[in-house]
Computed example of a mutant assay.
Amino acid sequence: MRSARFWLRSLSRVGTLGAAALFLSLSAAPAAPAAAPAAPTAPVTQEAAAVTPVGINGQLRVCGARLCNQYGKPIQLRGMSTHGLQWYSQCVTSGSLDALATDWNADVMRISMYIQEDGYETNPRRFTDLVHSMIEQATARGMYAIVDWHMLSPGDPNHNLSRAKTFFTEIAQRHAGKTNVLYEIANEPNGVSWPTIKSYAEQLIPVIRQHDPDTPVLVGTRGWSSLGVSDGSNETEIVNNPVNASNIMYTFHFYAGSHGAAYLGALSRAADKLPMFVTEFGTQTYSGDGANNFAQAQQYIDLMASKKISWSNWNYSDDFRSGAVFRTGTCANNGPWTGTGPLKPAGVWVRDRIRTADNFPTG
């Protein structure tokens, strides 16, 4: 069962129409006894589905510079990104996903599928099927799922354009009927110009739209999705030359131990003109390791809350680095997954910010 804090947070996000739908669903639902979470293949009742993030918010769309729910109300999604599936799929289990949905109260899970580095290119069928499975598991729990085409090296997304067309064609065909899937088509373009990235997006988005005309598409930005800041540029190159497509958002990644005022300022300015989604961030350095800079990270959290910028944190695994939320060995032992006991300091910090609404106290 979700906590009372979760329902308060949900009401603060969905607006009057969404709140009305939520109360109707709650009043129709009988009180449920405390029980262990159902397996991912178990049927979900209409009453249970109605009070999940997807049940409340439904099909998302871009409205102006914001992400909006089925009632046209701007919302903010908060959740976690997996680590690379080729290394840490053992951290994405029935138990860990139950915890993410019902203990962390996450709205969204980012499914991080690397293309190189022993990822998709080594076995396209295996990795495509793995993504299908994780979309279904997120769906069963009422969470949104970001399908992350995690290209990183080489940094030109056009290197993988043919693979991306094949992959996203199948994903869009199979999941077009769902209301909870978002497509992130280029994780961190690097070493290339914005026009090069824009060209890639304008070739791939129509492939997705043939099968799924409604789902928001998330487009990576220059300089490791830094809006070009890491390359000495800024958001104006996108403002002045946006992707020629509708219902899209632009991604921004930051690591608080490395990315200070220049990055924060670019995100703030961009969010006033462009639909932004922070699909990856950490409280450490850009390597996902090192000391946590919680003070700098909180500045980002506050900015994203004030401008309703959705986010997912890196990463939901037990990697040895400080940015992995679970203590090393948690996944191999299949948990425990709930509470703060199995978490590193970064995990405790981000879990609290996912669970607790900005306008409600912690604790």
Rank of each mutant, 00 (worst) to 15 (best):
226 S>K: 13
158 N>C: 06
157 P>Q: 14
198 K>I: 08
140 A>N: 15
163 R>Q: 04
180 N>I: 08
174 R>A: 01
253 H>E: 15
232 G>E: 03
157 P>M: 15
131 V>C: 05
164 A>L: 14
153 S>G: 08
221 T>Q: 03
206 P>F: 14
200 Y>W: 06
244 N>E: 13
180 N>Y: 11
204 L>G: 03
148 D>V: 10
160 N>W: 08
250 Y>C: 03
220 G>I: 15
238 I>Y: 04
218 L>G: 01
146 I>W: 00
126 R>M: 06
155 G>Q: 06
166 T>M: 05
219 V>D: 02
147 V>W: 02
134 M>V: 05
128 T>Y: 01
238 I>A: 02
207 V>M: 00
180 N>W: 12
184 E>N: 14
201 A>Y: 07
152 L>K: 12
163 R>Y: 03
172 A>M: 12
168 F>Q: 04
184 E>C: 05
130 L>I: 01
200 Y>E: 06
242 P>F: 10
178 K>I: 02
236 T>G: 01
186 A>Y: 09
129 D>Q: 12
203 Q>F: 08
129 D>N: 13
212 D>I: 12
144 Y>P: 00
159 H>C: 04
148 D>N: 13
134 M>A: 07
191 G>P: 14
130 L>T: 00
201 A>L: 08
202 E>G: 12
143 M>Q: 12
248 I>M: 03
216 P>Y: 14
233 S>G: 13
195 P>E: 15
222 R>L: 12
210 Q>W: 07
238 I>K: 05
216 P>M: 15
184 E>P: 08
227 L>H: 02
179 T>N: 13
240 N>C: 09
130 L>Y: 09
221 T>C: 08
203 Q>C: 06
126 R>V: 06
257 G>T: 11
160 N>R: 04
196 T>C: 00
147 V>N: 01
219 V>C: 07
161 L>K: 06
139 T>A: 09
256 A>S: 12
238 I>P: 05
159 H>A: 11
141 R>Q: 04
200 Y>H: 08
237 E>P: 10
